[in-house]
Design a protein around this nucleic acid. Structure first.
Lengths: 192, 192
DNA sequence: CGAAAATTTGACATGACTCAACTGGAGTGG
DNA sequence: CCACTCCAGTTGAGTCATGTCAAATTTTCG
């Protein structure tokens, strides 16, 4: 199942790993299956692993005083998930990450990742690209959130993440957009 | 005036540049003064330079169909400003960046920065740290924006950016928070 | 001082939220 | 295979937070 990751690396960097590199990568990542609803990370913990999603669908969210979930990230196969700040700074995370579908993950600790950087150039190149892409995406989402109406944000979501629609229920998408499920339901009704 | 940058590098990386490195850095960055209201970047342009702010205060914002400004970033001395996506991907930027106070900047092109990476390790280390710190900040801000009320976001802002209060007028801060100046005015009245 | 910019205030409009009820599957177990 | 529950989605009524617009006031600065 590490092939999914090799393919990902190739698509991102154009680099094909050598035999040795593949072994290094394979031994650095540990495979893990999660059943729907299982946690990968819970609020207050340190984010020990970053996860590459081989198969499945995951959510990253915080829970406010009223018990309402606010979804910061949705992710499916070929995405990464984790709390970067906690992962790098070793601070307790404010987020929960759990499986929305049964999922297969490849986990890596920060220490193993740093080792890989030295030994497998494609990995450091890949993370640099991921960081870039990620910063673009967050920037765009922030821009949308402060300057667009709920409806426009939903339109935007439809074009940027059409694949998520089939994988996550509407109320999760609503939360991701920062609105309630009722509001999203009404927006959709109007728009059709 | 490159000392401000050297100090910044030292504070970020703990590394003191050698004579040669200082010269390399000095020649890679070009100095530029901007008067209040002057643009560093305008919507539709490619972001050719990233700017280190030696002195002054800058704003990065987009303008919607109604002509309303939405401030994505405020920055003062010892901050960097630029549109990363446009800078890396060479795509037209949706943002304007202008000086809110008379400012002194050190500009660097992408090509010159890539050169520096090879020649001055402290620079690549610094950017890596900046990327990290930046991604934490954006993540936090996104979390705040989707899960907090206007009032709580303002409280949050007060603790994370107390220094901005003296440098930018309230209506800019309101825009940064994604609310109107009237709403911010009312929040402040209540809160005192 | 005087003009421009920033802030405050009031009245009103509205988008989005809350709460509660209802509908319609999709399982699950008897 | 049906009854039952659970979960997602929809709908309605009322409320609340925030926006809009216009005017008044205060501050800033040439």
């Amino acid at each position: 199942m590490h092939e999914a990751l090799f393919n990902y690396i190739f698509r991102y960097t154009g680099l094909q790993l050598s035999e040795t590199e593949m072994e290094l990568v394979t031994s650095a990542f540990t495979f893990k299956k999660l059943r729907k609803k299982q946690y990968l990370l819970q609020e207050g913990e340190i984010c020990k692993y970053f996860a590459f999603i081989v198969q499945g669908a995951m959510r990253q969210y915080s829970v406010d005083e009223k018990g309402v979930e606010h979804i910061l990230q949705l992710a499916i196969e070929n995405w990464w998930i984790g709390d970067r700040e906690s992962y790098l700074m070793l601070t307790p995370t404010p987020y929960n990450i759990d499986a929305w579908e049964d999922s297969e993950l490849l986990l890596i600790t920060r220490a193993d990742l740093l080792n890989l950087f030295d030994q497998v150039p494609a990995i450091s190149q890949m993370t640099r690209q991921m960081d870039d892409k990620n910063s673009f995406a967050t920037q765009r989402r922030l821009k949308a959130t402060i300057s667009y109406s709920a409806e426009k944000r939903y339109q935007d979501f439809l074009t940027t993440h059409p694949d998520f629609l089939q994988r996550f229920p509407q109320h999760q998408i609503a939360s991701y957009l920062g609105i309630t499920k009722e509001t999203l339901s009404r927006i959709r009704k109007q728009t059709i």
